[in-house]
């Protein structure tokens, strides 16, 4: 029987787990080369596999032997990812997808390595980048500014890291979809990203707990979702071509939103600095009333609230 064409072998690899893809490296020389040139890196799944039973635990609660075990496994994972990326990038191939989940105990000590991985992915023209950095203390990994220069990237998903040092001109010319979850960002970055990415159609901002103001102005944007940004005080959105707007937060006063499309609103309690729900008060209801007055296309309204004082009939 003839051997399958290379393209179809890579196609089969799409349906294998990352570990199973690694296993194919030993089949033959041809397969080894195919394995090295496979352009989809799902280190997200591999991390869970390497870290095993510790992956769902918070290292703050580790016993001593667990900490040692965690470090040992993390080192093996790190070595593997590093070797893999270096080998791939030596071939000067285009990277389709890079997905990384990693938990860090010491953010500062390991950030140079993550910077290097991101650089390698960017240099190989990565199309989809998905980074999830689990944080256990308050220290956060800061992404290198070069991430704003990834001209061929069309999807970016970030979780648990910090975006700062935004350059004057950003070059995310192909970016269509941006998801920011638990990312430390500010108004300027969101504003710049939405106004300077010429193809951006989808934006999701969730659990970005530091952001206080969101200002978005885009003719391109089609889908916008803002949720669980607990410090949010102001939003100013001008998106005349939006097709869908989702907002899930405490109601803020006088939102300015130009989005002539269906809305889905979930109103929740405000959260105080200690992370506790704040009981509903008159202001909350006034804010909500105010918010509801902004659009006549509210498709869904959900109130997911808790109160000791107010009876909602």
């Amino acid at each position: 029987m003839d051997e399958l064409p290379d393209f179809t072998i890579h196609h089969i690899m799409i349906y294998l787990s990352a570990k199973e893809v690694v296993q194919t490296s030993v089949l033959s020389k041809k397969w080894f080369n195919l394995y090295v040139s496979f352009a989809i890196f799902d280190f997200h799944e591999l991390y869970k596999w390497f870290i095993g039973d510790l992956s769902n635990k918070n290292p703050a609660t580790f016993r001593k032997n667990e900490t040692i075990r965690f470090h040992k496994r993390l080192n093996r994972f790190t070595e593997f990812v590093d070797a893999f990326l270096v080998r791939f990038s030596n071939q000067k191939l285009c990277m389709q997808k890079f997905r990384l989940l990693i938990g860090l105990l010491d953010v500062e000590a390991s950030s140079f390595l993550h910077d290097k991985w991101i650089e390698l992915a960017l240099r190989n023209g990565v199309k989809e980048l998905d980074l999830n950095v689990q944080i256990y203390k308050n220290a956060m990994y800061t992404l290198p500014w070069t991430i704003f220069t990834a001209a061929s990237m069309n999807a970016l998903t970030l979780e648990g890291c910090k975006l700062e040092h935004i350059p004057e001109i950003i070059r995310l010319y192909s970016l269509k979809c941006l998801i920011l979850n638990k990312v430390a960002i500010n108004k300027e970055i969101v504003q710049k990203l939405t106004s300077q990415c010429p193809l951006l159609e989808g934006l999701k901002v969730s659990s970005c707990v530091l952001i206080v103001r969101i200002t978005i102005s885009s003719y391109r944007l089609k889908k916008l979702s803002i949720s669980s940004c607990i410090k949010l005080k102001e939003i100013e959105i001008d998106t005349p071509n939006l097709l869908y707007f989702y907002h899930s937060n405490h109601p803020i006063l006088t939102p300015i939103v130009n989005a002539p499309c269906p809305w889905e609103l979930h109103f929740k309690n405000a959260i105080d600095d200690l992370g506790n729900k704040v009981d509903l008060d008159a202001q909350w209801f006034l804010n909500m009333k105010d918010f509801l007055g902004v659009s006549n296309q509210i498709r869904f309204l959900v109130m997911d609230v808790w109160s000791k004082r107010v009876q909602i009939a």
């Binding site: 029987m1 051997e3 399958l4 296993q23 194919t24 030993v26 089949l27 033959s28 041809k30």
Partner: peptide, 15 residues
């Protein structure tokens, strides 16, 4: 197993 996969695809091990 590796052997099974080789047989499945008709791969000759040239390592």
């Amino acid at each position: 197993s590796v052997e099974y996969v080789r047989a499945f695809f008709g791969i000759e091990n040239d390592f």
